[in-house]
Design a binder for these strands. Structure first.
Lengths: 201, 201
DNA sequence: CCCGATAACATAGCAAAGCTATGTATTGTG
DNA sequence: CACAATACATAGCTTTGCTATGTTATCGGG
């Protein structure tokens, strides 16, 4: 009884927008649809407007981030895994800095709390594993420590990706995470070794 | 031989833009000059365009931040002072979140490296005082530790001001800084007490 | 198998954005 | 005092996002 939306068009527009964003070309309504064969109305039928497109872009950014984090192979050393997750997080931000900025450009309200929560969850699980392995004290709240790790990762990614710090400042991730996890109970020497193993690919 | 620009007009426009930004009103060329008596051309003679205005806004943001940090009274406890600087940094971001976002919206290249460096310098000096007082190990690089403190402060401010974390997440500043400074050599108990004194107003 | 209702889609045009062109006024300097 | 250079005002151009309107395609029922 109705004509259904073609899912291919939606992903086509999202991919093209991400591509233009990565190429540092301004993503405007007309430049987005130019050459795709679809008209400007497609943006409104599929996203309800440009704001909806940006919202979908943020979702796409979090989806790619989640995939990137899920691809990190876990080991027997959960602290190494935490550092590997942090390195993957930062690396993801560096491969598409503009998309990363869009993800946190919450100029319009976000329906994306769930996507951001997924990012946290992989960190929370790694913290729980580290606690279970006896690396962290029992009284550390996994969610809180994961949030603090996220704060470090985001601060680093944000200041380097489109900010004032140079690329080599990413190396600060090692001492920052080492300090945080040592404060959570890990042995300093072992902690630093684990983190360096996980941070450097 | 020439007609000079009136500095009052420039600061008038900057102040009005900051005011509209704080009121969460869209800052457009026409809405900015509306009611001020000056015409749209003023934005071009004084800033060269809207991009120049945003650039000036970032400079203004860093200037206000520097003033805010300079107003922090130093004590005999340099670690407390470091926490107080961090709290002032975060507090400044919370009182004008949109201005803070503009400061790091480097969509156009920044001539603002100096302003950002000033922010770092107050941190560097505090770290140097802490090292001289024997709170940190001698082998800590003041610039590196200051940068790491900045990373924590910015990550926190960015995730809370316009991001997904709630206000109460600002309390993570205490354990984060405690871990960092303890890792730099401070005694854990003394460190936590100093930071809590400096963090809470 | 076809027909109608419903939604996708194309086209055109509107309001507002930033910017530029051009003429006028003003002011510092020789 | 007079000139020249610059600030300033006005108007209009281009592009932006968006909407209104007409057309076309598609899914479901008879």
């Amino acid at each position: 009884m109705v004509r259904l939306k073609d899912p291919a068009v939606r992903s086509l527009l999202i991919d093209r927008a991400a591509q233009m964003l990565a190429a540092r070309q301004p993503v405007t309504l007309r430049s987005l649809v130019a050459g795709t064969g679809v008209s400007t109305m497609a943006v409104y039928t599929y996203f309800g407007g440009m704001d909806g497109l940006w919202s979908a872009m943020r979702q796409e950014g979090f989806t790619r981030l989640a995939a990137r984090l899920a691809a990190v192979s876990m080991s027997a050393d959960p602290v190494r895994d935490l550092a590997a997750l942090g390195a993957a997080y930062v690396s993801n931000a560096m491969t598409s800095p503009d998309l990363y900025r869009v993800m946190f450009d919450a100029g319009f309200e976000l329906e994306n709390a769930a996507a951001a929560d997924d990012t946290l969850h992989s960190l929370v699980r790694a913290v729980e594993r580290a606690t279970a392995a006896g690396r962290f004290r029992d009284d550390v709240d996994p969610l809180e420590l994961a949030t603090q790790s996220w704060t470090i990762g985001h601060g680093l990614a944000s200041l380097v990706a489109t900010g004032p710090l140079p690329h080599q400042s990413l190396a600060h991730g090692v001492p920052l995470l080492t300090a945080l996890f040592t404060g959570a109970g890990d042995h300093p020497e072992q902690c630093r070794r684990s983190i360096e193993r996980g941070w450097h690919p």
